[in-house]
């Protein structure tokens, strides 16, 4: 049993007696995962599905994520919803840098993951993970609102598993971990650099 863990049998027994026992870590994660405020920020087609997710039928408020903030200073989650163009990429990195820690990124849709159908475009960034770290990727073109809700729940599960202390504690609690990343510059032919090697380490392509 690790630090901050409670014996499940003891906890159930105590709950029967009307005593609710929790740990700091559980309370912290519980509060955090149920009040994720996304940045109100849409790029392309996926943004419309993001709005549909926030509208009455799919109702992201059930998961505590309906408070879309127009300012990055007040947001916890950046949903990169749509094609990231090279002209837009520096702005996205800048917005990410302006968000306060802890911050999370959902890469919504094929375009934000890899460029998607527009991968061969000269102005299309081949995935936002070239410049900023991504927590959840959700494929689709565009992903249905249910898929975005799934991504949201995945993120909640990820937050729930965060450790407050120890060697494997959450990245935002480690002062050594960077929370801001360099903003790429507009070059003569391409963005400079075309990817941030600290963030983007693509696996070696295995071919037959």
């Amino acid at each position: 049993m690790g630090e901050g863990q409670i014996d499940e049998a003891l906890r159930t027994e105590l709950q029967r007696q009307g005593v609710w026992v929790t740990s700091m870590q559980e309370l912290y994660n519980w509060g955090r995962k149920n009040s994720i405020w996304p940045l109100q920020f849409g790029l392309a087609c996926c943004a419309i599905e993001m709005i549909a997710t926030a509208a009455s039928r799919y109702d992201i408020a059930r998961f505590g994520g309906e408070i879309f903030r127009p300012s990055p200073r007040q947001a916890d989650l950046m949903i990169v919803a749509g094609t990231v163009t090279k002209k837009m990429a520096p702005q996205i990195v800048r917005l990410y840098n302006q968000m306060a820690d802890p911050k999370y990124v959902i890469s919504m849709g094929a375009c934000a993951i890899s460029g998607g159908p527009f991968k061969q475009g000269y102005n299309v960034l081949k995935g936002i993970d070239r410049y900023i770290p991504v927590d959840v990727y959700i494929p689709g073109c565009p992903p249905r609102p249910e898929a975005l809700l799934h991504a949201f729940m995945e993120l909640q599960r990820k937050i729930d598993e965060q450790k407050l202390t120890g060697a494997d504690k959450a990245a935002h609690l480690d002062p050594e971990e960077p929370s801001e990343f360099p903003v790429p510059a507009f070059g003569k032919h391409d963005l400079e650099p075309p990817a941030n090697p600290d963030v983007f380490q693509p696996p070696e392509l295995k071919r037959v």
Binding site: L43, K87, M88, Q91, Q120, G121, Y122, N123
Partner: peptide
């Protein structure tokens, strides 16, 4: 303009 210029015509 151009923040969503995804090269539709060239593709």
């Amino acid at each position: 303009f151009g923040y969503l210029h995804r090269n539709h015509e060239q593709i």
